[in-house]
Amino acid sequence: MQQIKINTTTKSYPVNIGHGAVRMLGELCNGAEDRYTSVMVITDETVASLYLPYFRENSGLERFIEKIVPSGEKAKTFDVYYDCLSAALENKLDRKSLIIAFGGGAVGDLAGFVAATFMRGIRFIQVPTTILAHDSAVGGKVAINHPLGKNMVGAFHQPEAVIYDLEFIESLPEKEVRSGFAEVIKHSLISGEGFYHWLREEINSLKSIEYPQMLEFLSKGIQIKGSVVAKDEYENGIRAYLNFGHTLGHAIEAEAGYGNITHGEAVAVGMLFAIELSREVLKLAFNLEEFKMWLQSLGYRTSLPSGLSVDRLLLRMKQDKKAVGNTIRFVLLQQVGHPVVSEVEENVLLNNLKKFMEEGE
């Protein structure tokens, strides 16, 4: 079992990661200095069918309310959010209650936002079940989607703890592994060449990741995320670097329809484009073809999904949370491990996006 400490300006909390980590949950809840009056577990249909019996048996919680929501991005809607608030009220949760987010990144975002807004904010714990959630479960960003943009309605609300039981990860379908591993790649590109080259050398297939490799890259990714959040909890500066690949990635998700392309698949394409843009704008020296071939060997698509409009993608990017006064701001790389936030002129962005689309045809 490994523990990583996350320190922010408002809260410090542990991330416990390893096999059987969920067994720490009961002790953690029962040992809370300010005892919880009730516990509501928010999970989705897929996780409930696979893991809720294991959770009941091993969490050490005597009783809790179960709220099951749709799987994936379908959980992050106003209707589902409202339904969760109603469930909390109907079950008489109060300001000393606890919400547990049990699932992937979408459930964590939803449950965290419910906790952030119910009675002006109550405590919550993240129990992630996917690789993708190693990124989203840490740092306190919680949100739901709006039809005009991903994660546009949300808050900063740090969890009390993150309990990362790798029992859940080992049964993930390859598509979900691929989606989550894109965020690991992102962490390597913004943090330094050492981690990036380690991934390139160690991970040649997403079908056969060894436990030590999994523990290593998840722990490293969480440490990178934690170090950035510690310096910039509310994304006033360097925390924006964590959005590398996400400006176009989020636009792709929105245009393709939430859930029709996984977050990680969209971010992988977004990272490729951001690297091409970095070579154009910042003269980044980077072997793009080698990187693209590695992504393809891991099963990632390396081009824009068919049927998407360049003009529509540009409009979506103007609505990105980093945009200021309709000016699009991109996270680019000066070199691996040295990201910057750069304002990119619309004509430069449009020309490069058209070129990127043509290259993929």
Results as ranks from 00 to 15, higher is better:
Gln2Phe: 14
Lys5Gly: 12
Ile6Val: 14
Asn7Gly: 14
Thr9Glu: 15
Ser12Cys: 13
Val15Asp: 07
Asn16Trp: 15
Ile17Ser: 09
Gly18Glu: 06
Leu25Asn: 05
Gly26Asp: 05
Asn30Val: 00
Asn30Leu: 07
Glu33Ser: 13
Tyr36Phe: 06
Met40Asn: 04
Asp44Leu: 07
Ala48His: 13
Pro53Glu: 03
Tyr54Val: 10
Tyr54Trp: 11
Phe55Asp: 00
Arg56Trp: 03
Asn58Gln: 12
Arg63Ile: 10
Pro70Gly: 05
Glu73Phe: 00
Lys76Gln: 00
Tyr82Pro: 10
Asn91Lys: 08
Asp94Cys: 06
Ser97Glu: 01
Leu110Thr: 01
Gly112Ile: 04
Gly112Lys: 06
Ile122Tyr: 00
Ile122Val: 09
Ile131Ala: 07
Ile131His: 02
His134Tyr: 11
Asp135Arg: 05
Val138Ile: 13
Pro147Ile: 09
Asn151Arg: 11
Val153Arg: 03
Gln158Gly: 02
Pro159Trp: 04
Ala161Asp: 10
Tyr164Trp: 13
Asp165Leu: 05
Glu167Gly: 11
Glu167Trp: 12
Ser171Leu: 10
Ile185Glu: 04
Leu189Gly: 03
Glu193Cys: 14
Tyr196Glu: 04
Ser208Leu: 10
Glu210Arg: 15
Pro212Glu: 10
Pro212Thr: 07
Met214Asp: 13
Glu216Lys: 15
Glu216Met: 15
Ser219His: 09
Lys220Cys: 12
Ile222Glu: 09
Ile222Trp: 08
Gln223Phe: 11
Glu233Cys: 06
Tyr234Ile: 11
Ile238Phe: 09
Arg239Ser: 07
Ala240Asp: 08
Tyr241Trp: 12
Tyr241Asp: 11
Leu242Gly: 05
Asn243Tyr: 09
Thr247Ile: 05
Ala256Leu: 09
Gly257Ser: 08
Tyr258Cys: 06
Thr262Leu: 10
His263Asn: 00
Gly264Trp: 03
Val269Ser: 02
Ala274Val: 06
Ala274Asn: 09
Ile275Arg: 07
Glu280Asn: 08
Val281Ile: 14
Leu282Gln: 07
Asn287Thr: 09
Phe291Ile: 04
Lys292Arg: 14
Leu295Glu: 08
Gln296Tyr: 06
Ser303Gly: 11
Val310Met: 05
Leu314Val: 12
Gln319Met: 14
Asp320Pro: 10
Lys322Asp: 00
Gly325Ser: 03
Ile328Leu: 06
Val331Met: 01
Leu332Ala: 03
Glu345Asn: 12
Lys354Glu: 10
Phe356Met: 01
Met357Lys: 15
Glu358Met: 13
Glu359Lys: 14
